[in-house]
């Protein structure tokens, strides 16, 4: 059975419950016939993808719901074969070029060219152009982005791009200036509560207002997370009340534990224990930058005011190093050591 987060995903612009003005604008663009390239950005779990899919539906009608997944093989200049998955309907296709890492340029060039050089198959289609949705556009290499820019210019009669990104910071300026920027802010806590309430009602779950509020708060304005938390709470407990425990994901619990340990004991032996836990996290594919960020925010409420900005400072410092370096554990550990020393000084 499907998760609530999938089951109750709005399928059309009408069904979207927040950012009404934005929905209206998207609808207007879709109906106008002069649909520009879009760059949709905003934090994770804010509903970018949902909105884009709804917009596509507005553009083409229900045909976009019939999707299939194909694997295409591309050949790089060094004759390496890349397998690449494409989700498509007859009107649009969706790709995640950053999947193939540094070869994303090849995929972008070949695939988009191919798409652009063929016209809409369905002669009765509402639009003459096809839409290509590009996920994680901010993870594209510069090369790929440059290629994208050319493609946009060359093939715009037959094709529109919708780029999805978490932030515009890593998108090169030429692309930003060639696309219409659409910011999708995360829903506010009240908006999340509303969604939870309506989902709860649809599922005939007991409505506990205070609990919903707590979930909204804990989710950090991430709707997807809020829905998952909501479902997890209801799946795990028979009696739901305002004080029902909202269990964090295991990785977060472990990081919280590390934070506690850092505060309690400042010794080399502890460092070694923490190192082991870090390895545990890393080996479970938890990104190092997530670890350091979560750790910093778990530490901050527990330490004295003077140290808070210090902790943030070092976490930002080592976060940068994690991006730049190769052995993330060095930097994580240096951060932990730094914090321990600060705490020890103060004690």
């Amino acid at each position: 059975m499907a998760l609530l987060v999938d089951k109750h995903r709005p399928r059309s612009l009408d069904a979207l419950t927040y950012h009404d003005e934005l929905s209206e604008r998207l609808r207007a663009l879709a109906q106008n016939g002069d649909f520009p390239h879009l760059l949709v950005y905003g934090p994770s779990g804010g509903g970018k993808k949902t909105r884009v899919i709804a917009t596509l539906k507005e553009l083409y009608g229900p045909g976009v719901d019939k999707i299939k997944i194909d694997a295409r093989v591309f050949q790089t200049t060094s004759n390496r074969k890349l397998e690449f998955n494409i989700v498509s309907s007859i009107y649009h296709l969706e790709i995640t070029p950053s999947d193939v890492g540094n070869y994303d340029r090849v995929v972008i060039q070949d695939l988009l060219k191919e798409v652009a050089q063929t016209q809409q198959v369905d002669q009765s289609a509402k639009q003459k152009f096809k839409v290509v949705v590009i996920n994680e556009a901010d993870h594209l290499t510069r090369d790929a982005q440059a290629a994208l820019r050319r493609t946009m210019e060359k093939y715009s009669p037959n094709m529109r791009l919708i780029l999805l990104a978490n932030s515009t910071s890593n998108i090169i300026a030429p692309i930003r200036s060639r696309t219409l920027l659409v910011r999708v802010a995360a829903p506010s806590e009240e908006e999340i509560c509303q969604v939870l309430e309506s989902v709860g009602a649809a599922e005939k779950l007991k409505h506990v207002d205070a609990l919903n509020k707590r979930i909204a708060q804990e989710s950090g304005r991430n709707l997807r997370r809020a829905l998952l938390m909501f479902e997890a709470v209801y799946a795990q407990n028979e009696n739901i009340n305002a004080n029902t425990l909202i269990p964090p994901p295991d990785w977060e619990a472990l990081i919280a534990q590390i934070a506690d340990e850092i505060i309690q004991e400042h010794t080399p032996a502890k460092i070694l224990q923490i190192r082991e836990k870090m390895y545990d996290l890393l080996s479970h594919c938890i990104p190092a930058s997530t670890i350091i960020k979560t750790l910093a925010f778990k530490l901050v409420p527990k330490i004295s005011v003077n140290l808070k900005s210090e902790v943030i400072k070092w976490s930002a410092f080592y976060d940068h190093r994690i991006r730049m370096g190769s052995k993330v554990i060095f930097h994580l550990e240096a951060f932990v050591a730094k914090v321990m020393r600060m705490l020890e000084r103060q004690a």
Binding site: Y41, G42, P43, G46, N166, S167, T168, S169, R183, V184, A185, A186, G220, R221
Partner: peptide, 9 residues
């Protein structure tokens, strides 16, 4: 951050 503003901006 939640509103999605770009940091460089």
């Amino acid at each position: 951050a939640a509103d999605g503003w770009s940091a460089t901006q």
